[in-house]
Amino acid sequence: MTTPIVTTNNTMAKNSAATPLRSKPKQLPFPLNLYQTAVGKKWVMAVTGLMLVGFVFAHMVGNLKLYLGVVTHHGERIYDADVYAEFLRNLLVPIFPETVFLWILRLGLLAAVVLHIHSAYALTRMNINSNDRYESKRDWLAANFASRTMRYSGTIVLFYILFHIADLTLGLIPGYDWHHGAVQSNVVGSLSNPIVAAFYLVANVLLTVHIFHGIYSMFRSLGLNNPAFDKIRQGAAAGISGLILLGNVSFPIAVLTGVVDYDVCAEGVTASEENSCVIEESHDAA
């Protein structure tokens, strides 16, 4: 014989008309049933967020190649950033044909972005729908700028990413001479425009703010709850997003100040090629 022990907290339960705001959906098969719930969507947000932070970090590190200028690659004088771009297109060749693995990575990122945005959208709607506004002014104790602006920083970052792809990956933004694969000249061409550079600066600050709260939240959403993490959580979030910020805002500044530039004459096959710039340079060297 078993007897359930029920503890209730508020005495008003008996005569209340507390109607649910939403009904329980019919359960889909695993793992879709997870995505039907808010806690499951938070898992998806955290996992896709982790993938995207990883990408942003690697992207920033890759961009540091802009500072290395021209290198000799297979006997050719070429900008290191362009070598790196070539390397990415040749990832895992010959297991995969050229650019195939790069496309697999891109599709993975695209899926992560779509899921991240969809879960954010669905949860935001749920939150707005659960909320009832206070008539008096709230006095926030813990919520910070980053946590309260996630939906806005995220939206602006989305537009920034779309612009960034149209600008440097597809060359659709007029204003400079875009060439496929010419990373250094494209970046310098685009960011020489102070308006574009300013947009990149602002967007990257917002991206950092977004990532800061994202990293901080991720542990809890994923149920990673070691008291040892608690002490480093905020520090880790600040450290990683700080590194990303430093790297990313340095690029537009470096282009505007001329630290990173593009010089047609610096590139070329060999000094014997009939390239006037190269010949001049070799004279200088002599």
Binding site: L21, R22, K24, T37, A38, K42, M126, N127, A143, S217
Partner: peptide
């Protein structure tokens, strides 16, 4: 959890609740 989600919003880790 599923009953909670019928009535309330979703956590965005502000931390106001604990305060």
């Amino acid at each position: 959890v599923e009953t909670m989600e019928q009535y309330f919003g979703s956590c965005t880790n502000h931390g106001e609740c604990k305060e």
